[in-house]
Simulated scan of single mutants.
Amino acid sequence: MLDTKNKLKECLKREKKYYITGKKRHDQLVEWLVNDPSVRIWKYQKALRYTEYYFCQKGIKRLPYLWYRSKRNRLGLKIGFEMVEGVFEPGLVIYHSGNIVVNGFARVGEDCQLHGDNCIGNNGTTLEAPRIGNRVDIGVGAKIIGNIEIADDIKIGAGAVVTKSFLTPGVTLVGIPARILKKGENQIGE
Rank of each mutant, 00 (worst) to 15 (best):
C56W: 14
I176M: 03
T4S: 14
F166I: 09
G133R: 10
L29N: 07
N122L: 01
C112N: 14
N118A: 11
D117S: 14
S38D: 12
Q57N: 08
R69M: 11
Q28K: 15
H115A: 13
G133S: 10
L114F: 14
L77H: 12
Y68K: 10
K143N: 12
E149Q: 15
M1K: 06
K17L: 09
F81L: 10
E15P: 02
F55N: 08
Q187I: 12
D111V: 01
G98E: 13
Y53P: 05
D153P: 12
R74C: 06
R135C: 15
G139R: 07
S165P: 08
R131D: 04
N147C: 04
I94L: 09
D152S: 13
V174G: 00
L173H: 03
V162S: 02
A158N: 14
Y53I: 05
N103T: 00
N99H: 13
I145M: 03
C112T: 06
L173E: 02
V84N: 10
L77R: 15
I60G: 01
G98M: 09
S38P: 00
V102Y: 04
G157I: 02
I145W: 00
P130R: 01
Y68I: 04
G159L: 14
G146N: 09
P90K: 12
F88A: 03
H96S: 11
N147T: 00
E185S: 01
R40N: 12
Y44Q: 06
K183W: 00
T21C: 12
G104S: 12
A142R: 06
R107I: 07
G133P: 06
D27V: 09
N122I: 00
Y54W: 07
L2P: 01
Y18K: 03
I148T: 02
Y53T: 05
G170P: 11
N103H: 15
W67Y: 13
P64M: 06
K16I: 07
G109W: 08
Y50M: 10
L8V: 04
N35H: 11
G76T: 10
F105Q: 09
Y95S: 06
F81W: 03
Y54C: 06
E190C: 00
T125L: 10
G80H: 06
V171K: 03
E31R: 07
N99T: 04
T126A: 01
I120K: 04
Y65M: 05
W67C: 07
I132S: 07
G104K: 00
I20V: 15
E15K: 03
N99F: 10
G76N: 10
D117A: 15
D111I: 01
P37M: 07
T163R: 05
K182A: 10
K61F: 08
Q57P: 02
K58T: 11
E185V: 04
Q45D: 00
